[in-house]
């Protein structure tokens, strides 16, 4: 059975005279037990989608079912079975770690002890601070506590809206390790994130941009689908290198990527040596050029451009 099934879903908001299309006729299936990533920048429609799945919003058109239940008709039943973590920090700042967890356990008609097994690994990391007010926790700690609160009633589906935004790399890594171990315990997890580098940690991902899915597949599948040639270039002067590479007619889509810049040749006949020779003629120093495998971010940018043009 599919944990989530979304068909031709649309959602728009009207503020004043403006109407914003947050989701435009999208469809999606998430299998039970999957760790599924919804990847896209701010304003792509991630939050709207998750809120519809969490029964907090109703779509303008189309259908969404969660755990076999309709999000509009059976919203009460769905709310018993899902764990939801909204994008904003959603705990009571003036209550302690323990009081927060206890409160959420009680409103879900359970207790911390009853489902302790599920949250044990996570809770043990924050347990030393259980008397501390939630507002005084660091970003990573807050995230862990919020996750504990979302898990306390042993949901079969976990919906996480940007759990790692504004959190440092270290805490992000820990958070994803936790998600992986939760998945092992049989949970279906849907994560929305703006970080493209988190894509490879999911079983499958949907690339979302301006209310449209650009592609839905496994991370490796998405990369395999876009096997265009990609070059990486670096020298000792990034700014000049960008200008010079762009001024050469043989390549397009020149963008910085970490210490390298990435670009794709116009035609498959173009030799990478020609680029190197051109850059040498521009007096670039310590040039490195190589052909590379694209990453999710390369694909996303490629698809974004294509979508934008069409």
């Amino acid at each position: 059975m599919n944990a989530i099934s979304v068909r031709n879903l649309s959602k728009s908001y009207t503020t004043g005279k403006q109407t914003v299309e947050a989701l435009c006729n999208i469809s999606l299936q998430v299998a039970a037990g999957e760790l599924f990533g919804i990847i896209g920048p701010d304003g792509a429609g991630k939050t709207s989608l998750l809120r519809i799945l969490a029964t907090l919003m109703q779509p303008n058109a189309g259908q969404a079912s969660v755990l076999g239940l309709d999000t509009t008709k059976d919203y009460k039943a769905i709310r018993q079975k899902i764990g939801y973590m909204p994008g904003r920090f959603s705990l009571y700042q003036d209550l302690s770690v323990e009081e927060n967890l206890d409160f959420f356990a009680t409103i879900f008609k359970t207790s911390i002890d009853a489902n302790y097994q599920l949250i044990k690994d996570i809770y043990e990391q924050i347990a030393p601070f259980k008397k501390r007010k939630a507002g005084k926790l660091s970003g990573g700690m807050k995230q862990k506590l919020a996750l504990c609160c979302a898990l306390i009633h042993k949901p079969s589906l976990l919906l996480l809206d940007e759990p790692t935004t504004g959190v440092d790399v270290m805490s992000r890594k820990e958070f994803w390790d936790m998600l992986a171990s939760l998945q092992q315990q049989g949970l279906t997890i849907v994560v929305a994130t703006p970080y493209m580098d988190e894509a490879s940690l999911c079983d499958r991902i949907a690339l979302l941009d301006r209310g449209n899915f650009l592609e839905i597949d496994t991370p490796s599948g998405i990369i395999a689908n876009h096997q265009s040639t990609l070059w990486a270039v670096k020298s000792d002067n990034m700014y000049q290198l960008l200008q010079d590479t762009r001024s050469w007619s043989g390549v397009t889509n020149v963008f910085p990527f970490g210490e390298y810049l990435h670009c794709s040749p116009h035609s498959s006949n173009t030799d990478i040596k020609e680029l190197e020779a051109y850059l040498l003629s521009k007096k670039q120093q310590q040039i490195v050029v190589k052909q590379i495998e694209p990453q999710i971010e390369d694909v996303f940018m490629h698809l974004m451009n294509k979508h934008h043009v069409s």
Binding site: G40, P41, P194, D209, F255, M301
Partner: peptide, 12 residues
């Protein structure tokens, strides 16, 4: 943190 949440093209 000038680029938080910005799409990859705009970020560049």
């Amino acid at each position: 943190e000038p680029t938080g949440g910005v799409d990859p093209v705009t970020r560049r």
